[in-house]
Design a protein around this nucleic acid. Structure first.
Lengths: 195, 195
DNA sequence: TGTACATCAGTGAACGCGCGTTCACTGATGTAC
DNA sequence: TGTACATCAGTGAACGCGCGTTCACTGATGTAC
């Protein structure tokens, strides 16, 4: 009943959730054609709203991409937190997020696309960074020793999962790895820990 | 004397190396504002040629980016070959290339920007792939054992250097790593081998 | 060596188009009384 | 409960602009004789 309430509600002059609709359309468009493969007008057409609506909510394309990145980092932090405390699992969650939320991921690590001083973006990114670093701090067993090694280990773990995700998304990895990026990443990441 | 011959040569109607000039301008523009941050007309202005010249040589933007990627893969293969046979050194050369030739690197792993069936691009990429894979095949000592492990090790090595380079270029890594990406990458990559 | 001609790299004016932006307007919603 | 009004999300027409593309033209170079 109420499940379909939104669908049967007669179209109103006020959309109600235009901001969210535009954001979702942007994420979809980015996943399909990259952060530069569309115009604000095209996005509005896609979302079924007037072409002036995106500007009304986000100002310009940079503002919209900043909002995408901010929401992306929030979802990212939640995904990593949900993976638990084992660094191996956090790494797999990293890869899974990148593949499942390509539209967010492709914008998050492109600061040239953001409004750098946006407080919402900064807060969301700091949160995600915190989760990543906390995960690493708990695992000293693959850092041979010494205080400097811990950070080196953190960057190595970050690099290997980030690199795998990026190569997977770009289609550069051999096709016979199969269709499941998380399964394919498991032994690769494992190589960093088991020795 | 002849060092400055090109500079004092009177301007001729025929440029002589327009293709190369445009290519160089494109690589510079990409390094500064990314593969989508400029138009063909803007590029022509930058190169000091007529706005119709880029189309004359490359057809459209995809054609130009395809040529950039093809030349990039050729330079990349040379850089990796020049690093020798030690996989650790090849990895550092990978990072150095990405940072020193950002304009090429940013296009190479973005197949959505290329004309996929371009024979020159395909040949250049195959060559670079060959160098990478040969480097890995020589180093079995960090693959715990078994034939499947060798490929896993190859992908792990590729992922860690690619990820480090990408994170460095995006500015995501902590600032106190210093200004030399190759020096910063050395212990990180080392973590994959020494155990 | 000189002349005539074909070739083709590169030019620049002109075009139509989609873009971002502006702005007066519409109409639903919330609030005061 | 009813009326009046303020607010503001969203619209749609109009604008000027830079873009990619086309195309007739220019002029340097190479070749034939």
């Amino acid at each position: 009943m109420t499940r379909y309430a939104a669908a049967v509600t007669p179209p109103s002059y006020h959309h109600g959730d235009l901001r969210r609709t535009i954001l979702a359309a942007a994420v979809g468009a980015i996943a399909e054609t990259g952060p530069a493969g569309w115009s604000l007008r095209e996005l509005a057409r896609r979302a079924g709203v007037s072409h002036a609506a995106p500007a009304h909510h986000f100002g310009d394309k940079t503002g919209l991409l900043t909002a995408v990145a901010a929401e992306g980092y929030t979802l990212f932090a939640e995904a990593l937190e949900g993976a638990g405390t084992d660094l191996h699992d956090v790494g797999l969650a990293y890869v899974r997020f990148a593949v499942d939320h390509r539209g967010y991921f492709e914008v998050m690590f492109r600061p040239d696309l953001h409004r750098a001083d946006d407080p919402e973006l900064t807060a969301a990114r700091d949160r995600a960074d915190g989760v990543l670093m906390r995960g690493v701090r708990d695992v000293r067993d693959f850092a041979p020793g010494g205080p400097g090694d811990e950070r080196t280990a953190a960057i190595a773990a970050w690099s290997i999962v980030h690199g795998f995700a990026d190569l997977w998304l770009s289609g550069a990895l051999p096709a016979d790895l199969g269709g499941d990026p998380v399964a394919a990443a498991r032994p690769v990441i494992g190589l960093l820990f088991t020795r």
